[in-house]
Design a binder for these strands. Structure first.
Length: 478
DNA sequence: TTTTGAGTTGTTCGA
DNA sequence: GTCGAACAACTCAAA
């Protein structure tokens, strides 16, 4: 029997399990898988260096996995509507299946694809699988989207628990088709100096994602509540880049952690707290869906007048991890070397950029976008706005992180600092977060010459704090 | 409609 | 060294 084939259009859902659209496609007939890289899209947020490095490897992993199951992955470059219509016509497919996306350009892209297919008598079918709940499902009683996390998450948890996609055998189309371009020719792989070490830290792909989840549940869920705040400990799941590329579904993570807490009721609170983090992912994506200007414009419009007055030299020092504040420098160097930064340190470095250096959060957002493996448009914009104070919550404007206090609280012995800022490795813990306070003899013994092999503080904390408070006063008064 | 309670992540100062 | 209060007052969501 000759069944009509269909196309599965992979996007940020680079996995074969828990993928409703792929299951549906497979149930309808044999599937040809395709990924389209649209380098020339008018979207200003094409993937940065780290994301491209990851994407390259994730596509490679997906291709191998498909081949093992008798399928193949067509890689293409260009506008998705052109590529998909052409491919569907070539093989005589009648439908293109995909997962729905929620970014500012997504609706438009999906509409263009649907229209182009329709002109040829074909159709696009969209499925969930990327979010636990659709943005339309989570509404306040007055039928508006939530702007505050806690009531949002409370509401989510009253909705029906999201289900895992039905399994079923995947069936792949065996006929001839255009071969597309090679993975190498997509030009995703990164040749930055930093990237040589990235492979030591990460295993992109569905198998790596499952392994990260398993390891987390086995060794870090117990103690998560306390451990997750300490950057030198392996106390977080490191799932963010896997989730970003859809190598694992949030549904699977949700169920897996829920199951773990059923087996171990003593871990209930840890499990709930971890799932809350999935909630933040969900919240930021819903918020971006409802407010597409989130990455470009302050959510609170009065912040459009904020007197950002930081200088280029300060931005460069921050980017290079040479601010003279050890915990800030450690975070920024961890980012460059690994494509990751611990959550606690993201807050400290981001706060430092906006409040100590008075540099527009969008400059920081751009830098993180380029270097984070897990760079996610929604989470990145949402969190930067939160730190800058222009975001949705009414967090007090005087909340300015002190790099020293944060260091002492969350990296008491300085292990994290010393790992990423090796020039401070011989400094006693007492001075590791404020080397400028160390007596000359201590600095000498540690082989540190301030201003030479480690910088003096770029700005004075107390002065910078006062200036930031004054700047925020200005915005509030206006 | 009005009221009420609550809101991710902090710092500093002084008793 | 520890602890509580002050920092200012705003918006959201639900009753």
């Amino acid at each position: 029997m000759n069944e009509v084939p269909s196309i599965y259009w992979f996007r940020s859902d680079l996995r074969l399990t828990d993928l409703p659209g792929l299951s549906a496609a497979s149930a309808a007939g044999p599937v040809l898988a395709c990924y389209v890289f649209d380098e020339l899209s008018d979207d200003a947020w094409t993937p940065g260096s780290a994301s491209r490095w990851w994407l390259h490897r994730s596509l490679s992993a997906l291709r191998s996995e498909l081949q093992k199951r008798g399928g193949k992955l067509i890689l293409a470059q260009g506008r998705p509507e052109a590529v998909l219509t052409q491919l569907a016509c070539d093989i005589g497919a009648d439908t293109v299946f995909c997962s729905r996306e929620y970014e500012p350009c997504s609706d438009d892209t999906e509409r263009r694809v649907a229209e182009s297919l329709a002109e040829n008598g074909l159709r696009l079918k969209r499925y969930g699988g990327t979010l636990l709940w659709e943005p339309e499902q989570v509404r306040t009683r007055s039928d508006t989207p939530f702007k505050v996390f806690t009531p949002f998450w409370k509401c989510c948890l009253t909705l029906p628990e999201p289900n895992l996609a039905a399994g079923g055998t995947l069936r792949f189309w065996q006929g001839q088709s255009a071969s597309g371009v090679s993975l190498e020719n997509l030009g995703l792989d990164c040749t930055d100096d930093e990237s040589v070490r990235w492979a030591d830290y990460w295993s992109p792909g569905e198998a790596g994602a499952k392994e990260s989840l398993r390891v987390f549940e086995e060794s870090a869920l117990d103690g998560y509540n306390e451990g997750r705040d300490f950057p030198e400990r392996a106390a977080t799941s490191l799932l963010s880049p896997h989730l970003r590329f859809g190598e694992i579904s949030p549904h699977r993570v949700f169920h897996f952690i829920r199951e773990a807490s059923r087996r171990r009721p003593d871990l209930q609170s840890e499990a709930d707290n971890y799932l809350r983090e999935l909630g933040w992912r969900e919240f930021s994506r819903h918020l971006l869906y409802h407010h597409p200007s989130l990455p470009e414009q302050p959510f609170r419009s009065e912040f459009a007048r904020f007197p950002w007055c930081g200088v280029k030299e300060s931005l460069i020092a921050w980017q290079e991890g040479k601010t003279g504040y050890p915990i800030v420098d450690a975070g920024m160097r961890e980012l460059r070397q690994t494509g990751y930064m611990h959550n606690r340190v993201r807050m400290i470095t981001a706060s430092f950029l906006c409040k100590h250096l008075l540099i527009d959060w969008r400059a920081g957002q751009r830098w993180f976008w380029n270097y984070l493996m897990d760079a996610d448009l929604a989470a990145n914009a949402f969190n930067w706005q939160w730190v800058a104070g222009s975001g949705t919550d009414a967090s007090p404007y005087f909340r300015i992180f002190s790099p020293m206090a944060q260091g002492v609280k969350f990296d008491k012995a300085g292990a994290y600092v010393k790992e990423w800022v090796p020039e401070l490795s011989a400094l006693p813990p007492r001075y590791v977060h404020s080397p400028w306070e160390a007596p000359a003899s201590v600095l000498d013994d540690a082989g540190i010459c301030l201003g030479d092999n480690y910088p003096f503080p770029l700005v004075d904390h107390v002065t910078a704090r006062k200036t930031a408070l004054a700047a925020y006063d200005e915005v509030r008064a206006a």
